[in-house]
């Protein structure tokens, strides 16, 4: 099928890749974060193209609404972040380049050699009900394990973020004795 749909697909794919490159190369970490926003949006668009609507919305909700905001918060709360030296000190490092090349090789080998189950003819059918049913039946154990992991992370974060305050308060409480 050639037509506007293909053009839009190539535009979205180019947007995703170009902003991903910008994320890695921009000197200012805040601009990297902004480029990441467009990269995430592009990936969501790609999901729409393979008729995974629920996944696309999840992509936006989790990555833009959660992770990107977390990154922005971390960046804004650190001092003097916009200077290149602090936010992105090493621009080229041959060990890192080697690692990247190796990872790229493995990933592209996997992507090419794997036989993906392709549905004959894309049908833009709703996927939400199917996903929900599979999560509650066939993939219930991984689903529950993931939620327990997230809960543990949540409790851990709450604990880590308040050790000093807790000690001070208990010290204050003990003093009047």
């Amino acid at each position: 099928m050639t037509g506007p749909a293909d053009l839009i697909f190539y535009f979205v794919a180019a947007l995703t890749v170009a902003s991903a490159i910008l994320v890695a190369t921009l000197p200012n970490i805040i601009y990297s974060a902004v480029a990441l926003l467009f990269s995430f949006a592009g990936v969501a668009g790609l999901y729409v193209f393979v008729s995974a609507d629920f996944l696309a919305a999840t992509q936006v909700l989790v990555y833009v609404g959660g992770i990107l905001i977390l990154i922005l918060f971390a960046v804004f709360l650190s001092n003097r972040i916009s200077t290149v030296k602090i936010s992105n000190p090493v621009h080229f490092n041959w060990q890192a380049a080697l690692l990247c090349l190796a990872l790229f090789g493995v990933l592209s080998y996997t992507a090419v050699s794997t036989k993906f189950p392709v549905k004959p003819g894309l049908s833009y059918q709703p996927t939400t009900a199917e996903i929900g049913e599979l999560l509650m039946t066939r993939y219930l154990l991984p689903f529950e394990v993931a939620s327990v992991l997230l809960l543990a992370a949540l409790i851990g974060a709450a604990l880590l973020s308040r050790p000093e305050g807790e000690k001070e308060r208990s010290a204050d409480m003990e003093e009047p004795k």
């Binding site: 926003l37 629920f54 919305a57 909700l61 833009v64 609404g65 905001i69 709703p126």
Partner: peptide, 17 residues
Amino acid sequence: LNIGVYYVMAVTSLVVV
């Protein structure tokens, strides 16, 4: 959209950014 409510929740997160 068959994910209507979910879609609204997702796009409004752009506002925060």
